[in-house]
Simulated scan of single mutants.
Amino acid sequence: MHKILILIMIPLLYSCIREINPVIIDIEETYLAGEGVFILNEGNFRSGNGSLSFFSYDSLKIFNHVFQDINNRPLGDVPYSMGIDAGMAYILFNNSDKIEVAERNDLKSVTTMKKIVSPRYISFTGGTKAYVTSLYSDSVTILDLLSNSVSGFINLKKSSEAIVALSTKAYVANWAGGNKIMVINTVTDQVTDSIEVGIEPESMVIDKSEMLWVLCNGGWKRENFAELIAINTGTNKIEKRFTFPSVTDSPTCLQINDTGETLYYLHNGVRRMDTGASNLPSGVFISEQNHVFYKLGVNPSNNQIFVTDALDYVQKGRVIR
């Protein structure tokens, strides 16, 4: 089953996948397994109305409330990200301080891991271990995936956001006001290095040459220029550095295609950039028009691009393919 994970900041997926006009299914019809895309709907802050939707490639239908339908209870308050490993889905809740563990194919709940401080992203480091970043804790949480329990912590002395694992290294971004990428040895669970980058590194990907690309949005105060940086993971040294032209530029959601050759990110629309390019793209690949692009995903099996439209951040949103 091939899936990508896209986030949206409103209670329920509402409208269409562009060009195919699928049927919107609520809880009256059973969720169907198969190839498709999971969409996390953050819901309204402190309302506990976050939900999970699934777009099926097989039936061209969107199934809303799939977790609630199957488990007879709401998903939780602000589901922020989701990871899939070894047949299990791990849903992280930024405001509920928990991780829901469910079977990937039918979404039946396995367990709820509680008291995990503001979890943001999960990275599977091989075997039965995973790392979870945190907005409000100064440590990365280590998970034992066999027992679905916390097995330890790695003190970064700062908050953490995006995380990617490569071989025996995990790269962790210090996002909120930070400018460091921390390097962790995944065998010893020790911090071995730190790399100074731009202000607020918020998303990262690995390309086909095992270069780590880091998108730094410059900070919410817009006092620093945003940057796109390429780091050699063999040396942990910066090899490329692209600075955005205006201090008001605030790019987000760095993604990469299945071959590791093409980068995508949100900046007044969707931008596309070859990893061998000498300059940032000057034009927009997909125009935002009257939409409010919020999150971006690229399907690793067919390179289809999905973008969420948050509309006014209050009413039900849309996902666009």
Rank of each mutant, 00 (worst) to 15 (best):
L107F: 14
I116D: 09
V307W: 01
M273A: 04
R321A: 15
N185W: 00
G126N: 06
A33Q: 14
P300N: 09
I238A: 04
I20C: 06
N290R: 11
L166E: 05
Y313C: 07
I17K: 14
T192V: 13
F306N: 08
M88Y: 08
I320K: 08
G83T: 13
Y171F: 15
Q315L: 04
K169L: 14
E288M: 12
N64V: 04
V307G: 11
H2M: 09
L107Q: 08
E103C: 04
D26I: 06
L7Y: 13
D207L: 10
L107C: 07
N303V: 02
F124S: 10
D312F: 07
F244W: 01
N148A: 10
R46W: 03
S250A: 08
L107E: 02
I206E: 04
P201N: 06
M273F: 01
S139Y: 02
T133Y: 02
F54V: 07
S159C: 03
K108D: 03
W220V: 12
S301P: 00
V187K: 15
V187R: 10
I62K: 11
S246C: 03
Y31E: 04
N236W: 01
T262R: 02
L60T: 10
H267I: 05
I142C: 03
V270Q: 00
D144G: 10
N302F: 04
N49P: 09
G152T: 08
S139Q: 06
A89T: 11
G317E: 02
S250F: 08
F285K: 10
I320G: 03
D97S: 13
V78R: 14
I286R: 01
F285I: 01
T133Q: 03
C216H: 00
N179Y: 06
S96K: 04
K98M: 15
N64C: 11
I84P: 03
S209G: 09
V197N: 04
I181M: 09
V307Y: 00
G83D: 08
N49L: 08
F242D: 09
N257L: 03
T252R: 13
G152K: 12
L263P: 11
L32T: 05
S47F: 12
F285T: 02
T248H: 03
A86E: 12
S15D: 15
V191G: 03
T128N: 14
G260S: 05
N279G: 05
I91A: 07
W175Y: 14
Y171I: 06
E42N: 13
D309L: 08
V314G: 02
Y131I: 08
Y131K: 06
E35F: 10
T188C: 01
L263Y: 00
A173E: 06
G87M: 06
S149K: 15
A86I: 04
F38Q: 11
F54W: 05
I39P: 00
D309K: 08
K158A: 15
S51V: 06
R104L: 15
I305N: 06
I4E: 14
T259N: 12
M1C: 13
Y265W: 00
S59N: 07
M9Y: 11
A130F: 09
E42C: 10
I142L: 15
F55Y: 15
L145P: 02
I229G: 04
E28G: 09
Y294L: 05
Y294K: 07
T243W: 00
I231A: 07
G43K: 11
P119Q: 09
F54Y: 15
N232R: 09
N185V: 05
Y31K: 12
Y265C: 01
